[in-house]
Measured scan of single mutants.
Amino acid sequence: MASQGTKRSYEQMETDGERQNATEIRASVGKMIDGIGRFYIQMCTELKLSDYEGRLIQNSLTIERMVLSAFDERRNKYLEEHPSAGKDPKKTGGPIYKRVDRKWMRELVLYDKEEIRRIWRQANNGDDATAGLTHMMIWHSNLNDTTYQRTRALVRTGMDPRMCSLMQGSTLPRRSGAAGAAVKGVGTMVMELIRMIKRGINDRNFWRGENGRKTRSAYERMCNILKGKFQTAAQRAMMDQVRESRNPGNAEIEDLIFLARSALILRGSVAHKSCLPACVYGPAVASGYDFEKEGYSLVGIDPFKLLQNSQVYSLIRPNENPAHKSQLVWMACNSAAFEDLRVLSFIRGTKVSPRGKLSTRGVQIASNENMDAMESSTLELRSRYWAIRTRSGGNTNQQRASAGQISVQPAFSVQRNLPFDKPTIMAAFTGNTEGRTSDMRAEIIRMMEGAKPEEMSFQGRGVFELSDERAANPIVPSFDMSNEGSYFFGDNAEEYDN
C-alpha cells in the first residue's frame, strides 16, 4: 500500500510504541512475548500442572481467558453494579484439565481477579502490559475465525453469508486497541457500523446529549479505520460520505453494504499476525530463551520457528480426527482463516481442507461434555516452508469459486491468482447506482469489472525454506488448481455463540 510509510507498523501498534527502528520493534515485541511466557509459567505453578498438562491447549485457553477477564475493567465495573446470582464479580476462573488415573478430569478453578492481575503485572515488570493482553485477544479471535462461520451475524446486519472472507476479527472485544483495529476485516468494521446506525434509528437519543457526542466521535473513528483499509480513492470518498452524514440511517447502511461487497474484489488491507497460545510461549521462556534479547516478529519467520520446536497437546472428542484438529489450530496460529487453501497447503506441506470436510468441533470443551471418553493427542503445528504475512489485500483475480465463501483475504505475501467468483459478486451490483453516491458507485463498479483474471497478485513473492531466515531465496510455489480455494466452501461450520 502506498501510504505504508505514514502508518505505524503493526509491531508498533502491538507494543504501543512511538516510531521505533526494526531492532527496537523486535525487542519490544519480544518483551511482550516474554511477559506472556513468564505469566503462563507462574500460572502453571499456581495450578500445580504437570509439564504435559501445561502444554494442553484447553488449559492455555482457560488461563488466557482468566487474565483477560481480570483486566476487563468495563465488564468488571458492570458486574459490580449489576450483581447477578451466583456470579462473584471479583473472581474469575474456568475449567482446568488434569490427568488422573490414566483419565482426563475437569476441575473448575476460581481465583481472585486481583490475584491474577498481581501475577500478570509481576510477570511483566510491574506494568499492565496491555500489548500482551491484546495479543491474547487476537489469538482467540484468530481461533474463532478458523472455527466458526459468522453466517447468522452477517444475515442479521443485512449482509450476504458468502462475504465471510471479510469477517476477520469479528469476535475481537471493543477494547483491543490499535492492534485489534489493524486485524479487523472490512466486513467486521461494516458490521460494527451498521449495528451502531441501527441503534440510532431505533433509539432517538442515541446521537443526542453528552453521551451522543461520545457516540458520534466513536462512529467517526470507526469510519476512519474502515476508510484506511480501502485502497481505492472511490471507496475512500464513499467512506467520507458515510462519516460526514448528519443523521446516519438506511442510506448509510446501503452504502456500507455496497462497500463491503466491493471489497470482495477491490480488497481492503487487513493486517495478519501470528499470535500463538500462551502454552507455546511459556515452555520456550522456561527453556531459557530470551525473546527480548533475541527479538521477535509476528509477521516473519519467528512464529514458524517457534511452532517448529513446540509440543502442544489437545483434548480430542471420541469421533474427532486429531489431524483435522491440528489443521484448525495451525490455521489459527498463522492467522489464515480466509487465505486461499492452495497457498496454505503449499506452505504447510500437507493438504489443507475446507472447514466442512474437517471432523472436528471447536477447541474448547463445553462444561456439560462427558470427560470419560476424552483422549488427548499432539497437535501437528509444523510447516514445510515459511512466508511473510501481508497486510495488503493483493490485486484481484477471477477463479472458480464456491457456493460458500466467494473470495479470499490473503494472509501471506505469496504470488498467486486470487480466487473470487466474479459473476456471483457482480450480480449483486445491478441497477442500484442512484442517489448521492452514484458517481462513486459507478466508478467502483467500473474498477471491479476491469479486474483481470490473468493478473498475478504479489508478483514474484515466494515462500522460503525454514533454514532461509533472511528470506534470501524465494520459492514461487505451484498450486494444484483442481483443489478448492475457499475454506468455508459450501460450508456447515458451527455458528459462533458468545
Rank of each mutant, 00 (worst) to 15 (best):
E484I: 04
K31C: 14
L379G: 09
D128V: 06
A178M: 15
A387I: 11
Q327I: 12
L110R: 12
P173K: 12
E114W: 04
R391V: 08
A451Y: 03
S217G: 04
I406T: 14
E46L: 03
R246H: 01
L344Y: 13
N224Q: 10
R156N: 07
A427D: 04
R213K: 01
T15D: 07
S457W: 09
E339P: 05
Y52H: 06
K452T: 00
A263G: 04
R361K: 14
G431S: 01
L298M: 05
S326N: 07
V285G: 08
A22H: 00
L315Y: 14
A411T: 03
G295S: 10
I445E: 05
P474M: 09
G268H: 08
R461M: 12
I425E: 03
Q58V: 09
Y10M: 10
R156P: 15
E115K: 08
A427Q: 04
S262L: 09
R106D: 10
M456W: 14
I425D: 03
L264F: 15
E46F: 03
I25H: 14
L108H: 08
S274V: 10
Y111A: 15
S345R: 03
T430S: 07
P453D: 01
D240G: 02
S413L: 13
I33M: 04
K351P: 08
P161K: 05
R391C: 06
E81H: 00
M447A: 15
N247G: 00
V183G: 06
G288K: 10
L418E: 08
N205M: 03
G126K: 02
E210V: 08
S467Q: 01
K325Q: 07
A263F: 07
R243S: 04
N473Q: 05
G200Q: 07
L466V: 05
R267W: 12
S345N: 12
K214F: 02
M374E: 10
K351F: 08
E454L: 15
P322S: 08
Q364M: 03
P423I: 08
E192V: 15
I57R: 00
R99C: 08
S345W: 05
T147R: 04
N144R: 06
N432S: 15
A451R: 15
F230Q: 15
L259P: 13
G94P: 03
G249P: 03
R65S: 04
N492Q: 15
C164F: 03
